[in-house]
Design a protein around this nucleic acid. Structure first.
Length: 258
DNA sequence: TAGAATGTTACAGG
DNA sequence: CCCTGTAACATTCT
């Protein structure tokens, strides 16, 4: 269920807890979701040390030895770090470490995908320097008749933005989510670009502050409009909802439809 | 209890 | 062939 800011916090915290841990074995419980055999996974990871835990777009990549385990958590996936004999529910696969710690890769919806050595991505990540204002302008023009929200959520355009944070970004830049992408002026696109970085970085900061050791779950109390617990935006406008691209979108009348 | 859930993808239609 | 929008995916929680 997590989005970019949540995953950014999860990955940093998981890395702290798992760095240099040695893999004892990896067990696959739902083979349908794991695109590699248990044998291949074990020959890749058994006895190897965890180097890093990284966020890649909306995926989590575990760098272990000379290989990578790529995990896409989809809507409801969670990585649960277990110590002792606590057992996680809805386990798709589990990594046991020599120390006795276990990392459960879980999803109650059974939608997640786990891959061995995923291909590096060519589409820029929302927080990478390759994601520039010029690039965004170009992509918005390429999909000029689509709703701006749909373009921002398209993982072939930019990786990392999902339903919740595109609503946050569009409210912060006061753009109605259904505005056709091509109608935004170059100045507005510039502002939107800047807002994407600010909203993401500020959300990461807010999550770290409220939940310093978080490794799973998605706090939303810092969210301005995509937040069923709120009736009004921070500036006092009533939050409304509509459907865009089959997803529920939260917005207010403060946002201009271009 | 029917509907919703912060995602992705296959496919139909234009 | 390219572009777009919709439905399906499998499961649990509210």
């Amino acid at each position: 269920m997590p989005e970019l800011p949540d995953l950014e916090v999860h990955s940093a915290n998981l890395q702290k807890k798992l760095k240099d841990e040695v893999v004892e074995r990896i067990t696959v419980l739902r083979p349908k979701r794991v695109h590699a055999s248990e044998e291949k996974l074990n020959s890749a990871f058994k006895g190897e040390k965890v180097k890093s835990v990284e966020r890649e777009g909306k995926e989590m990549w575990l760098r272990i030895g000379d290989h990578t385990l790529g995990i896409h958590l989809m809507l409801n996936g969670e990585l649960i770090l277990c110590e002792g004999d606590e057992a996680a529910r809805y386990v798709t696969a589990e990594i046991s470490f020599k120390s006795g710690k276990r990392l459960a890769i879980t999803d109650r919806q059974a939608w997640i995908t786990v891959r061995l050595d995923p291909e590096p991505e060519t589409v820029p990540d929302a927080l990478a320097k390759e994601f520039t204002a010029e690039y965004l302008q170009d992509q918005l023009q390429r999909h000029k008749s689509k709703a701006v929200k749909t373009v921002l959520m398209d993982q072939d355009v930019v990786r990392g933005l999902g339903n919740a944070y595109t609503d946050e970004v569009l409210w912060t830049s006061r753009i109605h989510p259904a505005s056709p992408a091509g109608k935004l002026s170059p100045e507005k696109v510039q502002e939107l670009y800047k807002t994407i970085g600010e909203v993401l970085h500020e959300s990461i900061k807010a999550i770290r502050k409220a939940h310093p050791g978080l490794t799973s779950g998605e706090p939303r109390e810092h969210m301005s409009v995509h937040n069923p617990d709120r009736e009004k935006s921070p500036t006092g406008a009533k939050i409304e909802t509509t459907e865009i691209g089959g997803r529920k979108s939260y917005f207010t009348e403060e946002q201009v439809k271009y």
